[in-house]
Design a protein around this nucleic acid. Structure first.
Length: 263
DNA sequence: CTGCTCGACTGCCTTACATCA
DNA sequence: AATGATGTAAGGCAGTCGAGC
C-alpha cells in the first residue's frame, strides 16, 4: 500500500511516513521544516538572472539519465509516458556526453513553491506530483526526488537536534547522579558516627511526614502556583488530598529543572 | 583548494494488487 | 468460491555521487 494513503489530511510528520518499518522518533518533533525552508529560500543562486533569461527552459536542459530507476523499472520509455519522453528529448538534444550528470539548480520561485507544498504535506500523491511538476515546469521525477531529499534532510536535521538534546540530558543526569552518590556517601558516613547522626539536620532533599510516615520532597510538593514555605509540609491536608496528588516519592526527579527544555 | 549544499541515482524494503494453482 | 504462493508495480528510505557555489 502506498504510504501516502496512510497519511491524514495534514500529511503528518516525516516520521509517520516510513514505509520500511520505521518507528517514530523517541522525542517530540521539533519543527525544523521552518529552519530548512529559511535556508532554502535564503540560498544565493544566480536564479534571478536565470529567470530573466527564461529559467524554465534552462532548467530542463540540465537533466541526467532518463528519470533513473523508475523509468527503468516502469518502462517510461514506452509510449504511455509522453511527458517524460518529451523531457528526455530535450535532454538528449542538449546534452553532449551520455551519462554526464549535469547539476540542476532550482530557481528561487520553484524552491519556494516546493517548500510551501512540503509544509502542507511531506509526501505527494501522483496527482499532486504531476500538478506540481506541471506548475513548475519540471519533470515529475524531479519533484519526486526533491521531496525525497527534503524528507531525508529534514530527518537528518531532526536527528541532530534530538542528539544535542539527549547529550544535554545525559550531562544533567550524570551531574545529578554524582550529586546523589555524594549524598549517599555522606549519609553513610554519618550513620557510622551515631553522635553526629543525632545532631544532623534532616536530609536536604527528602522529608518524612510524621502523620502518615510517607517520604516527600518539599521541592516538588510545593508548586510555583501553590507555594509552600520552604521545607514545610501541609500535613493537615492529607485526608483531603487524593492519592494521585500524594505519592510516596516524587513523581518527577528533582533534577528535572536542570534538564534542558526543548522549545 | 576545500567544504558544504543539494539534485540525482542506486539498491533495497514494504505494500497493494493481480494471477494462478 | 476461498486460499495461499508468486510476480509486478509503485512508493519510500538510506547511502552515495558529483556539480556548483
Amino acid at each position: 500500500m502506498p504510504n501516502h494513503l496512510l497519511l491524514g489530511p495534514s500529511g503528518g510528520s516525516i516520521s509517520d511516513v516510513g514505509g520500511a518499518g520505521e518507528t517514530r522518533p523517541l522525542l517530540t518533533m521539533i519543527d525544523v521544516t521552518r529552519a530548512l525552508s529559511v535556508v532554502a529560500t535564503a540560498r544565493k543562486v544566480s536564479d534571478e538572472e536565470e529567470e530573466e533569461e527564461g529559467g524554465a527552459s534552462s532548467l530542463n536542459s540540465a537533466v541526467s539519465s532518463v528519470g533513473g530507476k523508475r523509468a527503468e523499472r516502469h518502462g517510461l520509455a514506452g509510449d504511455d509516458h509522453d511527458a517524460e519522453r518529451a523531457c528526455f528529448r530535450v535532454v538528449s538534444d542538449e546534452e553532449d556526453g551520455e551519462g554526464s550528470r549535469k547539476k540542476l539548480r532550482l530557481s528561487k520561485d520553484q524552491s519556494a513553491v516546493l517548500e510551501e507544498s512540503f509544509k502542507k504535506h511531506s509526501t505527494l500523491n501522483p496527482k499532486q506530483k504531476l500538478a506540481l511538476a506541471e506548475q513548475l515546469n519540471l519533470r515529475p521525477r524531479q519533484v519526486e526526488v526533491w521531496f525525497q531529499n527534503r524528507r531525508a534532510r529534514t530527518k537528518l536535521k531532526q536527528t541532530e537536534v534530538d542528539c544535542e538534546f539527549l547529550k544535554k540530558c545525559c550531562e544533567s543526569l550524570t551531574k545529578e547522579n554524582r550529586r546523589l552518590q555524594k549524598e549517599v556517601q555522606e549519609l553513610r558516613a554519618l550513620k557510622l558516627s551515631p553522635q553526629l547522626y543525632k545532631q544532623m539536620t534532616p536530609p536536604t532533599t527528602l522529608t518524612m511526614c510524621p502523620s502518615c510516615e510517607r517520604v516527600s520532597n518539599p521541592a516538588t510538593t510545593s508548586s510555583p502556583a501553590n507555594p509552600q514555605p520552604s521545607g514545610q509540609h501541609q500535613y493537615s491536608n492529607h485526608d483531603r488530598q487524593t492519592t494521585a496528588s500524594w505519592v510516596p516519592f516524587p513523581l518527577e526527579p528533582l533534577f528535572l529543572d536542570s534538564i534542558p527544555q526543548r522549545s
